[in-house]
Design a binder for these strands. Sequence first.
DNA 1: ACAATAAGCCAACGCTGTTGCGTTACGTCA
DNA 2: TGACGTAACGCAACAGCGTTGGCTTATTGT
Lengths: 366, 366
Amino acid sequence: MRTTGPLDRVAGAHDAAVLAVARRGEPVARTGLAEALQVTPQAISKILTRLIARGLIAEIGSFSSGPGKPTTLYRIVPESRRAIGLHLTRTRLHGVVADLTGQILERHSTEITPEQPVPALIASLARTARELSGHGPGELLGVGVGMPGPVDVDEGVHLGSSSRTDAWRGASIRDLLLDELRMPVLVDHDSRAALIGESWSQPGLLDNAVLVLAEEGLGAALRLDGTIVRGAHSRAGEAGHTVVNLSGEPCPCGRRGCAQAEYLAAQRDGDPQRAAEVLATVVLNLVRLLDVDRVVLGGRSVYAHHQVTMDAIREALDQGLHAGAPVHVEVLLSTRGVDLIAAGAACEVLEHEYGLPSALVGPSPR
Amino acid sequence: MRTTGPLDRVAGAHDAAVLAVARRGEPVARTGLAEALQVTPQAISKILTRLIARGLIAEIGSFSSGPGKPTTLYRIVPESRRAIGLHLTRTRLHGVVADLTGQILERHSTEITPEQPVPALIASLARTARELSGHGPGELLGVGVGMPGPVDVDEGVHLGSSSRTDAWRGASIRDLLLDELRMPVLVDHDSRAALIGESWSQPGLLDNAVLVLAEEGLGAALRLDGTIVRGAHSRAGEAGHTVVNLSGEPCPCGRRGCAQAEYLAAQRDGDPQRAAEVLATVVLNLVRLLDVDRVVLGGRSVYAHHQVTMDAIREALDQGLHAGAPVHVEVLLSTRGVDLIAAGAACEVLEHEYGLPSALVGPSPR
DNA sequence: ACAATAAGCCAACGCTGTTGCGTTACGTCA
DNA sequence: TGACGTAACGCAACAGCGTTGGCTTATTGT
């Protein structure tokens, strides 16, 4: 987004809103957009002119129903921009290239040695990014990295996990990778990247949603009233360390009955049913507390037992919400599979460039 | 806020931001505001001119340090606007008048008969509002009502509690009271009103905060990244019905080990220590999940045992956050006491009129 | 008394979306 | 086949936002 004038914020927000509507894939028309953005059709013309000049939107034809001049139709140009997304775990590095709509154009996967020191890690990330950077048309916007554990997205540093010593703690992954690649880099928490990715491809649908990610641990990301929640220290989403069983399993974090401890214990005991029930409790707690209307599930551990997991969650929601009003909560399994986080990281780069700005007035008043 | 032009959104946001800074009570100067809002001093002059014309801001003098023309100082004019706030429970009706800064000017309390039918309830509310409307100078903006149970703030209707039959369920309290008083009315959930009130008087401080309210039940309100969370169906904040003890006390909502059930059971057993520990678990769960840096406690049940409660929460936070990074979470007891919710409801009216707008582009794209 | 300094005002500017009016392209019907 | 009504669209003038550059004002220090 440009930052010259003061009204660019208005223009930028409108541009982003039009792109969001267009991203859904269906052709868009002037009138519909005017209604969606609450501006006059004439303003939409100006906005579309800007977007067309930037190559993000193109005309695709016209549509006539009844008398009068036919409506001109426009579509997003997916191939106009690209972004690289990298999913980093302790043992693997999975990367994708995504176009402007979040569609995956190319994949690349590598094994990495666990507990790799930071310089070697940066080299691996850069190698995968370079491997992917050749594929696909359109301007390459940058590289997004999604990784487990708390991450400060503003500084691009990994804050270190709470339960163990960590070779990556405090590493300024963003700055190091930026120096290496000479390209914008964005580093964020894995589940947050995943949720941004899921909502990028279906704008508006996940305005009030949580994504629960069950990989090595149990994490979550929150989108409330349209905004991703990061929290005061960029640590929001630690659903794995909320207590669900006061007298339960001890957790490395020092407390008893953390959801993650209960979940892992059930898995260790070979009891996927109990694990699913723990997950269902976490989900129901989130729904009750945050009043989201959509829940997205992802992560290897969910994919492995998706049937029992989905059943347990649906049952818990049916029971738990029945007493109250007839609110409907949709439970979705991520359709991206193993690409979930890598694609999300790529979409986060797109969102950073072309997403809706959250605040109108610059920073908060101190 | 005016709605004529398209740029009023920019102006409105800036006006609100200046008011927010001024609300802290200290005199404000052009330069400081320019820095806080990230605009030029010249723009601040224009903004202040608008606000002075509306009577919201006044000049109070000048301040000279070193050579050069002295800095002109401005202050908010608290007495320029007023709002009425009503706190409704099953047995009592407590009302206040607050000025533009949220200071309480007058109180009025009444007993009401439990399970009062809706028409009588409206009459009681209107009587208290009229009683209060005479006090204090300044334009009276409207009436805010804070009440327990889920409330749809957009429609102004009480949605009915989840556990019992309810004479007020579905009552359009806002519309009925509006017809009666011919004055803007705003109805919201009690804990949400409370949090808005607390943050109104200290702008910016509670940008990432939860307020936990322990009255008849256990409720919460969330403010994340500066925005009050309402949720998809205006039901966010049901912290009382999150499970903390999978094999615990049965709850009227149908599940076992809900925080509220555990809390009330501990109180019933005359064990304030255990009740405090349940509350501490709820707070720690909220802090972990949402990464807030401030927690505000309120409600009669907290005031009665504030020492053990605060101690238990501080201890839990010390233990629970020690393993991770050195993040500091401040735990505050509300200073408003029994006025908490009534004052909050009044502030919610003020915020509706003079608060920061959340979104830049009108509605969300469908 | 005079210079140096800092704050604030005025006027012109670029940008936003809006408004009013004219143009274009279609379907319909005589 | 041609006139007419209709709906989408473009052009130009407009009001309002913060910005820019130059000038005025009020204080301190020499």
